[in-house]
């Protein structure tokens, strides 16, 4: 199995980089390829089993989009072919049609995988929690962001929300999914926080693997789940 971790030196803010480390521990026999922003992505000429990209700054986001732009067709090919691609934090915004950086007075066209647009305002930071379901898996997560996504994602959302907001404050549908491309605004150690989802994600490659430190990860997950389901806990 081959796992490509994209630009972890600059797209791994808020603990996102540790999702890759956790995957390494879950898949000790897999080959991990860490591609930096100055190198050509491995996926251009190969088909990894899993691709991961995490949270980044706005400037980095613009750089990543320009990096990806020449490979737009290849990215669509991978998505259509069912490659597992996982994007966290503001990485999903890359797959939208347009990002409007309100504070910086800039606008950029995205990869247009989803008919959605993004508004980014550096003076409006949103912090929140996520409790939702992906299929029959309950998912917990944290969000801290300057941007929201707009458009109708109800038919291809990643999560049906139980508590917390969706792609924007009016939405109850969080993230996007197309085949095995999973996009979530949740950031940080999403995989260690969600051992059941981690196992599901890995299973989509045709491999079965137990989440690393499963017992301890499940203990922490259950504790958080009970807190998130407690109506006294603010969202």
């Amino acid at each position: 199995m081959t796992v490509e971790i994209l630009f972890s030196e600059i797209a791994g803010l808020y603990g996102d980089a540790q999702n890759a480390k956790y995957l390494e521990l879950c898949l000790p026999d897999a080959e991990f390829i860490y591609t930096d922003i100055c190198s050509e992505p491995y996926f251009v000429n190969n088909t990894p089993d899993i691709i991961y990209i995490g949270t980044m700054s706005e400037e980095t986001q613009r750089r990543v989009i320009e990096k990806f732009r020449p490979f737009k067709d290849r990215i669509n090919e991978l998505i259509d072919g069912g490659t597992v691609i996982f994007a966290t934090g503001n990485a999903p915004e890359i797959f939208c049609e347009k990002i409007d950086y309100i504070t910086e007075k800039k606008e950029i066209t995205g990869l247009c995988v989803f008919p959605l647009t993004v508004k980014n305002d550096l003076f409006k930071r949103y912090n929140g929690k996520v409790l939702g379901t992906s299929g029959d898996i309950k998912v917990v997560g944290f969000r801290s962001q300057f941007s929201f996504i707009y458009g109708d994602n109800s038919s291809y959302a990643f999560l049906q929300m139980q508590r917390g907001v969706g792609i924007n404050k009016e939405s109850k549908f969080e993230g996007m999914r197309k085949n095995n491309l999973f996009c979530t605004s949740c950031l940080g150690p999403f995989l260690p926080l969600n051992p059941l989802f981690t196992e599901y994600l890995i299973s989509l490659t045709g491999t079965s693997a137990e989440a690393a430190f499963r017992e301890e990860a499940m203990d922490a997950y259950k504790k958080r789940l009970s807190e998130f389901e407690d109506p006294k806990v603010k969202f």
Binding site: Y14, G15, D16, A17, Q18, N127, K129, F142, S144, L187, G188, P189, P192, L193, R224, E227, F228, K232, V233, K234
Partner: peptide, 11 residues
Amino acid sequence: NESENVCWLYD
């Protein structure tokens, strides 16, 4: 009445 964001532990 909260549940702390633990992302920072991973940094």
